[in-house]
Amino acid sequence: MISINKKLALVTLTTLMLSACGGSSSGSNMMPVDMPDPMITYSYQVTVTNLTYAQPMSPIALILHNEGQLWTVGEMASAALENLAESGDNADVLAEAMVLSGQSGTGLLLPGMSEVIDVSYTFTDVNNAPMMFSLATMLVNTNDAFTGINALAINNLAIGESISLTTSSYDSGTEKNSELMATIPGPAGEGSGEGFNAERDDIDKVAMHSGIVSVDDGLMVSALTQAHRFDNPTLAVMVTRTE
């Protein structure tokens, strides 16, 4: 499921060797100058495709980080993730303490659509390069389903290389999957659906999502139809390092 393209690794290595030689030959004649630490920027271009039939994705949250995870199966969802998974609001996830750099998609990512989002991180200490990439978004015609990428290792990704993968869907465990119109924030809730509610009335652990039932498949009170059903995977994602 993961493919890595390594064609530029050799080029980078050669460049490093050349610059090292140049430095040593002229070094003895140079006056000591108080230079500021050079700024280093790592940039990534992320292409996200919504693979579902009728589940718009809330604005995508992308983050670069060196520690932590956005979620762990079997553990309670953070308040930030709960908010994203119940309402689609990614602001709290993007403001998590572990975030080195975060970026939001421009709006809903509709079924069948792709979006290209750039995220960068600038730093001075060469040891502070971003090591992990995470992504999260809500399937908005659900109670609290989300999908994404959790702490993907990107520390070995050279410029020009990319990683492609597909994602499964999770249940934040913070809201019962009633599928009632009043609980669905997406279009299926017809504008009346509640988003975030701090009450946690489900198992209060993140697990994989069991899919929606729908009125067409035996849940008479559901505001969802057969069209809102989904299976894994729900997103295709390609992460390319561009700088």
Partner: peptide, 25 residues
């Protein structure tokens, strides 16, 4: 699992909002 939304009747004794799953498990 299919399940249904009637815990005292219907075809199934399982709850369709609780006892379904998608792979992987």
């Amino acid at each position: 699992n299919l399940g249904d939304d009637d815990l005292t009747a219907g075809k199934s004794d399982l709850d369709n909002t609780v006892h379904r799953w998608l792979n992987p498990v």
